[in-house]
Design a binder for these strands. Structure first.
Length: 572
RNA sequence: CGGGGUGUGGCUCAGCUUGGUAGAGCGUCUGGUUCGGGACCAGAAGGCCGGAGGUUCGAAUCCUCUCACUCCGACCA
């Protein structure tokens, strides 16, 4: 295609709404435009890359034996009502009514629909195992759409569902998907890490997330370079720190009540007591499905709500409001403590290691000193409750872990029989006996994957597409379009590459060379062949977007090199 | 959902405090000079200043309401 004819509305300036590299670049390079908060249109260049990402995923799913189908985005309420998720989703779900006033929604995810479809059509053990997938648009009315296409309200997801006879079968299906995911993300040129994830309220026997390491990632991951352990922070286990065990003050001292007017936060306490935040224990009051519970972590730690939620087995967990806190503790917020508290109390492992620490006195303006677990209060459970932090010992090997942010591009999940039980999706075994199918579900965010590729592959000048997902492989840039010799050579390179199956564009715009170079760098075409001054000698310039240095080739050499470059990168 | 910020031509923004009938740069169009990293000259088009109401002789500017976008937080199968 000739650039003069193409719809590539590049921007010189960064639109004010964009914060992160991929969002800025997707707008500047003319890949997409915003329609409303969290809703985007893909323009031709962006859509080419989008389809390439999609196609890579499709090929790898097919290779793994999964079968593609497509379901409607517009779904009747009944299916979600049957699984109970019509209410669970709440305002996240886009809901609408048809002319008969029947409830519909725009599908936020499709577990129910797949389960129902398979239930209705499949009865025999002979049909299993089976994995189905679709690449389809999802709708979620996110509270806070963010970062362009990273967290949007309309997005395309590849979602796959496996149906097996038993757990052993699920393990095999799951492993195939794991491998397909690795291959997909490898082919997209992503640097990613697979982490153990929390299965949470979904139940199930295991779950992993594919994370692209990036500072802008919303997920926190802990990983160990020594043994390869990696987990989402919701899941990462914290090993208690025993280093305080042998401290000088190991003898339990008598409790002292200390007046601490207006000293509420950990920081204020540190100043008041002149000691480190490790000498305090925080008591946090939560509402778990309406029931009040207290949770304790060391003063310098953050409570991990997922861990608490899993322990309590509750659906909804939120911090209690100030009113509830004072009615439970009898004191203003900031003075809660475990001693004499009349609600269930869960303590972090570390709290059990602490001696003679400071807690709130459940009386406004007072704290208690020299408090000890078991002597002064009892916890209903002592479990891992806190967030892991950089340098904590790895739960597998003990080496210090690293903590990084990640973009979740894929999630694979062993569902077990949660949905098949709920929706009665069963098969008949050899003995004619009914068994629930054992399911797995597997998702990849296509738009998000595309954005993650940009996030990892860019510089000050723009995007640096890996060949596999570049909208075009090669761009031919005649420096001066009024020079007929330059144009002639450029046309020749263009048509020969095109004939060889290389996706090539010709920047025939009558613009100054600087404008064309800037634009081509911005849109990130991997190979640039510049036809300039030395056209008369049959010499052109050859430059890779990612490398920077310019090589001089004859026209034939340049064509051959470009073909080689493209073919080898695509594994042809 | 709580707290902040911003809405002025396609993009980036000024003007608002102290009301007087809308500006710059970039982009676009025309003509010309140019042609190796976002050129120059000349000319032109394009905005009921997010919307509604109010105050006023007069509102982009002040007041009220509302909508949208955005950031921080909470939340996130």
């Amino acid at each position: 295609m000739r650039v003069s004819q193409m719809f590539i509305p590049t921007l010189r300036e960064v639109p004010a709404e964009a914060e992160i590299a991929s969002h800025k670049l997707m707008l500047r390079a003319g890949l997409m435009r915003k329609l409303a908060s969290g809703i985007y249109s893909f323009l031709p260049l962006g859509y080419r890359t989008f389809r390439k990402v999609e196609q890579i995923i499709r090929e790898e799913m097919d290779r793994a034996g999964a079968q593609e189908l497509i379901m409607s985005a517009l779904l009747p309420a009944e299916v979600y009502q049957a699984s109970g998720r019509w209410d669970v989703f709440g305002p996240e779900m886009f809901r609408l009514k048809d002319r008969h006033n029947r409830d519909f929604c725009l599908g936020p995810t499709h577990e129910e629909i797949f389960t129902e479809t398979v239930r209705n059509e499949t009865r025999s053990y002979r049909s299993l195992p089976m994995t189905l997938y679709q690449i389809q648009t999802k709708y979620r009315d996110e509270r806070r759409p963010r970062f362009g296409v990273m967290r949007s309200r309309e997005f395309v997801m590849k979602d796959a569902y496996s149906f097996d006879r038993d757990e052993a079968g699920l393990d095999i299906s799951y492993k195939k998907m794991y491998e397909a995911y690795c291959r997909s993300f490898d082919r997209c040129g992503l640097d990613y890490i697979v982490v153990d994830a929390d299965t949470g309220a979904m139940g199930g026997s295991g779950s992993q997330e594919f994370m692209v390491k990036s500072e802008i990632g919303e997920a926190v991951i802990a990983f160990c370079e020594a043994c390869g352990y990696a987990a989402n922070d919701e899941k990462a286990q914290c090993v208690p720190d025993h280093s305080h065990k042998d401290d000088c003050c190991s003898a339990e001292m008598p409790v002292e009540k200390v007046a601490t007017p207006d000293v509420r936060t950990i920081e204020e306490l540190m100043n008041f007591f002149k000691c480190s935040s490790k000498e305090f224990a925080k008591t946090l009051i939560y509402k778990a499905d309406g029931k009040i519970v207290a949770a304790m972590v060391r003063g310098d730690r953050e409570l991990n709500e997922t861990k608490l939620q899993n322990h309590l087995g509750c659906i909804e967990l939120e911090m209690a409001d100030a009113e509830t806190v004072s009615s439970i503790t009898g004191a203003a917020v900031g003075f809660a403590g475990p001693v004499g508290l009349k609600v269930e109390l869960v303590a972090d492992l570390e709290v059990a290691e602490m001696k003679n620490f400071v807690v709130g006195a459940n009386e406004t303006g007072y704290h208690l000193k020299n408090v000890n677990i078991n002597r002064d209060f009892k916890a209903s459970a002592v479990i891992d409750l806190r967030n892991i932090v950089e340098g904590d010992p790895c739960p597998k090997c003990g080496a210090p872990v690293k903590v990084a942010h990640g973009i979740e591009v894929g999630h694979i999940f062993k569902l077990g029989t949660k949905y098949s039980d709920a929706l009665n999706c069963v098969y008949l075994d050899e003995n004619g006996k009914e068994n629930p199918m054992v399911m797995g579900c597997y998702g990849i965010g296509v738009n998000r994957t595309m954005a993650a590729v940009i996030e990892q592959n860019n510089d000050d000048n723009g995007i640096i597409w890996p060949m596999s997902v570049a909208p075009y492989h090669v761009t031919v840039v005649p420096v001066n379009t009024t020079d007929s010799l330059q144009m002639e050579i450029a046309e020749k390179i263009y048509s020969e590459l095109q004939a060889s199956g290389v996706e090539v564009i010709l920047d025939d715009r009558n613009e100054r060379p600087g404008v064309k170079f800037k634009d081509m760098d911005l849109i990130g075409i991997p190979v640039r062949i510049t036809v300039g001054k030395k056209a008369g000698e049959g010499i052109v310039e050859y430059k890779l977007r990612k490398a920077g240095e310019v090589k001089e080739f004859t026209v034939e050499e340049a064509i051959a090199q470009a073909k080689k470059e493209v073919y080898s990168a695509l594994g042809k």
